[in-house]
Write a protein that binds this DNA or RNA. Structure first.
Length: 638
DNA sequence: GGTCGGGGCGCG
DNA sequence: AAAGCGCGCCCCGACC
């Protein structure tokens, strides 16, 4: 069932659709980001609501109000494909993560969408209602003053709808449910547009909503495409480090590989009383060291390294190898790599700052040593691009600090700032990190006072954010993503300290400072996440114009899953014919593309970085250079 | 038997 | 050199 909205329901508040942020001189920005409408955004791309399949609906009146003509469809995928081919559609749907993977499996990509759940969460945070459920049914219930239904899926965070329909008894029931759900969708969408328009800086927030929704699409597309991963290379790497793969059960419970077993035995033997010590157990290690007269407060690598004891060198080696085995060993390989691809599940906005998280597979913690296994398909390359010194540059732009911005205009930021710190690049770096993270120990204090003197606006910007946090207020990113309010426990603690009879305020002061560090960092980290998200959306749009895009249809997608590990000539084994995103990690992206278009992709990355800077910060002097490498193997980048 | 917090460490 | 921010995931061991 499809329901294209009329031109006046184009998905944007009038002001935001036509222009970028009022104080950002980039009129065409939103439309461009959102999918290629460019300045035509003012005319309004049509939008549509996608709900389910095999359901017929009478007419627009049935779902209430301001929607355009209703199109009957018996096949969601086919209908979406048809509308996409006509172009100029923004799909409005409840939850990209729920709807889009099936479309991708059928070989269909969409240009843009409005994700109601992601948008709801952004709005709730801004409205001081963070933590309330953001799925469609909950949003609709709030809108209509009904009791909010419980999430019917065991909430991983804020769980999406379990399914499109609740197993209708009859086709008529199915129709009724679908109609109700579509009504909810239309109403909640309209309500969201109103809330965006009524809030502060609707242009910026609209950009955030567009970028977040694009992020939803990209996350699903990257999961579908997968990161090229050579299981044979990974296996060889493990064998070189750990010895041959042990026979027996796959999984953490399995036997230690030869090298780890050998080290474990020698570690036990190196202790005085000769009894077995499990090197995986910090408690046992502390006891065993104590028995030999060595007192330690922890068994961290950095602590152990300073200790003189025969077991230590073995232990350090063991810890390093055991980590690889446990986190990214054969068990991981069996679980997460199939048909030459690693397919993590990304969680858009999984971090309060707007950074992404992943579920399973630890995709955002791939150790450097294992990046050897990330190898482009034959004839293809990886374009690995990361934003150089993103967070301090974002701070420079946020604060509008002229002197700082000049230093961040080009080249290495820390080098440019070095003269202010007596010519030492490391001092400049330390001072900035301390300012952004709230560090105070060691020489940080001294360096901070230099920063304060030379770059007062940048210093004051993070200082103000820290004070807001300490006082229990919230802070926001440049596009308006808002941090969570303090917990009830925090408030009680803070209130207690103000009470003369409240006893010692030890905890209160510590909690206040901790929250200050959080909000101090939030404004920078979240704004950097804004930037990265806009970069990603912009890059996706550019890449889509360069190749013939996604696999042509379900047949191909099915065939790929069936396991063609190696690519045929000219087409990656994912079946994607053109450049496509395969990885995103905070400030770094990887594009998998035919070697012949690598130069174009590099240019697209640079253009996207410029566009992101312009959309967020307008005519700032600050530049956001990308460090880009074109490689066969991820490990060869930087 | 399962759950959960802590220690530790990978990434940005 | 580490620390100050944000995560996910492993193992252990206390606990129910």
């Amino acid at each position: 069932m499809l329901c294209p909205l009329g031109a006046d329901g184009d998905g944007w508040p009038a002001g935001a659709g036509a222009v970028g942020p009022a104080d950002v001189a980039q009129p065409a920005g939103l439309g461009g980001l959102a999918g290629g409408a460019g300045s035509a955004a003012a005319a309004g791309p049509s939008a549509a609501v996608a709900l389910g399949d095999a359901v017929e609906l009478g007419d627009a009146a049935a779902v209430g109000g301001s929607v355009g003509p209703v199109i009957l469809a018996t096949d969601l995928a086919a209908a979406v494909r048809e509308h996409e081919q006509r172009g100029d559609v923004r799909w409005v749907w409840a939850d990209t993560a729920e709807v889009y993977p099936a479309l991708l499996a059928a070989g269909i990509r969409v240009e843009r969408c409005h994700d109601v759940a992601l948008t709801e969460r952004l709005l709730l945070s801004r409205e001081g209602a963070a933590g309330q459920p953001s799925y469609l049914a909950a949003a609709a219930a709030r809108l209509h003053g009904r009791p909010v239904p419980p999430a019917s899926r065991p909430a991983a965070s804020d769980g999406p709808q379990p399914s499109l329909f609740d197993s209708p008894e009859t086709p008529q029931d199915g129709l009724a449910q679908a109609a109700a759900r579509l009504g909810d969708l239309v109403a909640v969408h309209a309500g969201q547009l109103t809330r965006i328009a009524a809030g502060p800086q609707p242009g910026r927030f609209g950009l955030l909503v567009a970028a977040e929704s694009a992020g939803g699409l990209i996350a699903a597309e990257m999961s579908a495409a997968g990161l090229p991963w050579r299981a044979d290379v990974h296996d060889q790497l493990l064998t070189d480090l750990l010895g041959p793969r042990p026979a027996g059960p796959v999984g953490p419970a399995g036997p230690r590989p030869a090298r780890l077993a050998d080290l474990a035995a020698r570690i036990s033997a190196a202790f005085g009383d000769g009894r077995p010590v499990n090197p995986d157990s910090p408690a046992q290690l502390v006891r065993a060291l104590a028995a030999d007269g060595v007192q330690v407060t922890s068994t961290r690598f950095s602590v152990l390294r300073e200790i003189d004891h025969p077991a230590i060198p073995l232990l350090l080696e063991y810890k390093e190898l055991a980590r690889v085995h446990a986190a990214h060993g054969w068990s991981w390989l069996d679980t997460w790599v199939a048909a030459g691809r690693f397919r993590p599940e990304y969680v858009v906005g999984g971090v309060v700052s707007g950074r992404w998280a992943t579920r399973g597979g630890g995709a955002l913690q791939i150790p450097r040593t294992l990046r050897r296994a990330v190898i482009a398909d034959p004839g293809w390359v990886l374009v690995v691009a990361d934003a150089a010194q993103l967070e301090p540059r974002v701070l420079a732009a946020l604060a509008g600090d002229q002197a700082f911005a000049e230093a961040a205009a080009a080249g290495d930021l820390y080098t440019a700032l070095a003269s202010a710190f007596g010519g030492d690049r490391n001092d400049a770096k330390k001072a900035l990190l301390s300012a952004m993270y709230g560090g105070s120990g060691g020489e940080a204090g001294q360096l901070l006072s230099v920063l304060r003197r030379r770059f007062p606006q940048a210093y004051n910007f993070v200082e103000t954010a820290a004070q807001a946090g300490e006082q229990g207020r919230t802070v926001s990113s440049v596009l308006g993503r808002t941090c969570p309010p303090p917990s009830q426990a925090w408030r009680s603690l803070a209130a207690g300290s103000a009470d003369p009879d409240g006893g010692p305020d030890l905890g209160a002061g510590r909690a206040a400072r901790a929250r200050g560090r959080f909000t101090r960092n939030f404004v920078v980290q979240a704004s950097a996440a804004d930037w990265a998200l806009v970069l990603l959306a912009s890059l996706r749009r550019r890449l889509n114009t360069m190749g013939d895009g996604p696999p042509a249809g379900a047949d191909r997608a099915g065939a790929d899953r069936a396991g063609a590990d190696r690519a045929g000539a000219g087409r990656g084994s994912s079946g994607w014919a053109g450049p496509h995103l395969v990885f995103f990690q905070h400030d770094e992206v990887i594009v998998h593309c035919p070697a012949a278009v690598a130069d174009q992709v590099v240019a697209a990355v640079d253009d996207s970085a410029r566009e992101a800077g312009r959309l967020l910060f307008g005519a700032t002097q600050v530049s956001f250079p990308m460090t880009t490498a074109v490689v066969d193997c991820y490990a060869d980048a930087k």
